[in-house]
Design a protein around this nucleic acid. Structure first.
Length: 418
RNA sequence: GCGGAGUUGGUGAAGUGGUUAACACGGUAGAUUGUGGCUCUAUUAUGCGUGGGUUCGACUCCCACACUUCGCCCCA
């Protein structure tokens, strides 16, 4: 038997239902918030991701899906959404005749060559937004609240928005130096991974799972105190705006995100139960220029749909709710009954009634079982005698009451009683 | 890249180096001559992740690999 590749999954059953639900909700929100849908290629030149992410992390050396195509091009399957959108904005000069914010959203699969574990797959799906050409803190507030409002609307309420400011490049460099200065005498007391991080990415030490209760890390200099006036003002303004928009947030001074292209505001949507990030984002005011575009501020976030699906499943299990399936199941045995049923099914379907019909040679007993499995609300039990009189037997599958309805009124009857 | 635990039917699973792989749910058919969900009866894995090896004999022991799952690194 041929099995699916490691770390992938088939979107089936309840998962696929929830995916559609999320997909539809996201699209609705994006339209109302006036974000334009953008789709970029699944694969891009490897160099794009290397330049976006930087060359010094494990991400580039062991966590991307790289291959050489038949034309000897170095290609990488996109591991995240930002790089492709930024590339497209630059390449298509989408900023050319605009002086307002450019707002894009995507819903796409991503590929990461990782060892699978809880909430981590090799093929994952994210939705996200990227906004260009505005450095207004109002945009930061809009983007953060957009992700927040979507999650809330989906029915997820056990999460928290964690925010932090990394400051601008200068502030961050000053802070990094101060942090290293502070940690240097204690470096031997930290875990071996932190000793490695000290050299490669000192800010990540703040995120360490092993040393998180270590008094050395608890007394570490605060990032916020190294912010310059402008960054601090922005951060304070953001907090005011989020409160203004009724967004519950939490400040997390050790939230740094992994990549060094972020400036100023960063945030994550974190579940309360298991502290898993459903999504996160930040400002990246220098990335566009670094990738060959003009000086242009930008901000964005990505949300892991796979993780959101898992959260929704937990919530549904807790409530014991089974998602709605179909409205009407049409039953019949003889050829005439089935053919009559097919027309009725079409009439119902054209009127937005979710309808299924028996097409096989199943006994009534079996058809009832199918109807129950599909959680049909109404059963249309066709028989030749009544059909000849223009009547249809309608059974309410909740009350078990059965009545005969004129075939010309069946659609209205169903719609009126759903 | 590193480590732990797993892999038996549509599902949940038990199992032993030795002819036919428990049990339950589900499915199908019938008792019920075209209106079910209860009950009863029959039936439902030529197969125990894949490939090798040991053995008279392997689902059971050994090795490798694949996949699942939970962590580490990393986290876009």
């Amino acid at each position: 038997m041929i099995t699916k590749p490691k770390g992938t999954y088939d979107l089936i059953g309840l998962d696929s239902k929830l995916y559609q639900y999320i997909y539809n909700t996201v699209n609705e929100y994006m339209i109302n918030y006036h974000y334009e849908f953008i789709r970029t290629p699944v694969f891009e030149a490897t160099e794009l991701f290397h330049r976006t992410v930087g060359d010094n992390t494990d991400i580039v050396t062991k966590e991307t899906y790289d291959f050489v195509d038949r034309g000897n091009r170095n290609i990488t399957l996109r591991p995240e959404g930002t790089a492709g959108v930024v590339r497209s904005v630059i390449e298509n000069k989408l900023y050319g005749n605009r002086n307002d914010a450019l707002k894009y959203y995507y819903i796409e699969t991503m590929y990461r060559y990782e060892r699978p574990q809880a909430g981590r797959y090799r093929e994952l799906t994210q939705f996200g937004v990227e906004v260009f050409n505005s450095n207004s803190i109002m945009i930061d507030a809009e983007v953060i609240s957009l992700g927040y409002n979507i999650l809330k609307d989906l029915g997820i309420d056990n999460f928290t928005v964690q925010i932090n400011s990394l400051g601008d490049k200068e502030s961050r460099e000053n802070y990094t130096m101060a942090l290293k200065e502070y940690l240097k005498p204690h470096i031997e007391e930290l875990c071996s991974d932190c000793q490695e991080r000290f050299k490669k990415n000192p800010l990540r030490i703040l995120d360490c799972k092993v040393d998180k209760d270590n008094s050395i890390l608890k007394n570490v200099p605060k990032l916020n105190s190294y912010l310059n006036k402008e960054s601090l003002d922005r951060y304070n303004k953001l907090k005011t705006l989020l409160t203004h928009l009724d967004i519950d947030y939490e400040e997390n001074s050790s939230l740094v995100r992994g990549l060094d292209y972020y400036d100023d505001i960063v945030w994550e949507y974190v579940t309360d139960n298991d502290n898993l990030a459903l999504g996160g984002g930040g400002r990246y005011n220098h990335l566009v220029k670094n990738l060959g575009g003009p000086e242009m501020p930008a901000i964005g976030f990505g949300m892991g749909i796979d993780r959101v699906i898992n959260e929704l499943k937990k919530i549904l299990e807790g409530k014991g709710e089974i998602p709605h399936n179909i409205d009407v199941y049409i039953m019949g045995i003889s050829e005439e009954e089935k053919i009559a049923g097919l027309k009725i099914a079409q009439d119902l379907r054209l009127n937005n009634v979710i309808t299924e019909i028996n097409n096989s040679d199943l006994s009534f007993k079996s058809q009832f079982k199918v109807a129950d499995m599909l959680q049909a609300k109404f059963l249309l039990i066709l028989n030749n005698n009544d059909l000849a009189k223009g009547l249809i037997n309608v059974k309410d599958n909740a009350t078990k009451e059965e009545i005969k309805v004129d075939e010309n009124e069946i659609v209205d009857y169903i719609i009126g009683n759903l």
